[in-house]
């Protein structure tokens, strides 16, 4: 699996430490939930799950947390980076049923890409985004423009509904056939517990430290399960998680 060039078309500052990196590149069919490794020679290689990929244009929505993402935030138009992928297992999306897309933080990246695909297929979906406060709102407008229902949950109640997006799941789960989730670990654990309790068909995307990205180094193991985020995931159906003894 070799690298392909990706040219920076734009690097858009969204808020505080979050950016959209828009890349022009040519890689194979990359679906929502798939990830790529972004390689910046002499810096490092990091995993990212694009928030959109179509017609050779890829959008990476990323948060600056350290060296490589810091370097990414300083990339200018026309600069080149290198990527390999798609890697891992994507979300399984059907052409029917009602979908709930629920996430928090930059974890919503693969969810909004899923929303694009569902919208194209004419599938009904609700997009629920959880953020600390109104300044962090990310894809609500985009979800609405795709014809979905969209709800913002803020921790401080500064906009939308006050509280965590899991509150929405608790009261509305009966309306949905499929749940797609992605967020910080604590959020993922909560979604897992609720969906198990309600017997829902739910897929959750996880993050771990990905080093090889191809299932050999063991760095990305989901503790206690023997499942590899880079190979068996990053998207897991909760029935698989249960079968492998995931216990949040």
């Amino acid at each position: 699996m070799n690298y392909v060039k990706a040219y920076v078309v734009d690097n858009i500052h969204v808020y505080r430490d979050v950016y959209h990196l828009i890349l022009r590149t040519e890689i194979e069919r990359l679906l929502p939930g798939h990830f790529i490794m972004i390689w910046i020679p002499e810096v490092e290689e990091v995993p990212m799950a694009p928030s959109l990929y179509r017609d050779g244009i890829m959008r990476i929505t990323y948060k600056v947390v350290g060296e490589t993402t810091g370097y990414m935030s300083r990339l200018d138009r026309g600069e080149k980076i290198y990527i390999r992928g798609p890697l891992g297992k994507p979300y399984k999306l059907n052409g029917y049923g009602r979908y709930l897309l629920i996430g928090g933080g930059v974890g919503v990246a693969p969810l909004i890409y899923s929303a694009h695909i569902l919208s194209e297929r004419g599938v009904e979906f609700t997009y629920v985004e959880g953020v600390p406060n109104s300044n962090y709102e990310m894809f609500i407008d985009e979800a609405i423009s795709l014809g979905g229902e969209a709800l913002l949950y803020t921790e401080d109640g500064s906009k939308g509904v006050k509280g965590y997006p899991t509150e929405y799941l608790k009261t509305n789960y009966r309306y949905y056939d499929y749940i797609l989730a992605c967020g910080p670990d604590e959020f993922n654990r909560a979604v897992y517990r609720l969906c198990r309790e309600y017997g829902l068909n739910c897929q959750i995307s996880f993050e771990r430290i990905v080093k090889c990205g191809v299932g050999v180094c063991g760095s990305c193991v989901l503790e206690g399960t023997g499942l590899l985020v880079c190979l068996d995931g990053p998207v897991f159906n909760i029935s698989t998680l249960y079968e492998y003894g995931y216990s949040p």
């Binding site: 050999v216 063991g218 503790e223």
Partner: peptide
């Protein structure tokens, strides 16, 4: 040695 072998569950 070196293949998915540094964790009990693996």
């Amino acid at each position: 040695s070196g293949f998915i072998d540094d964790d009990p569950s693996l």
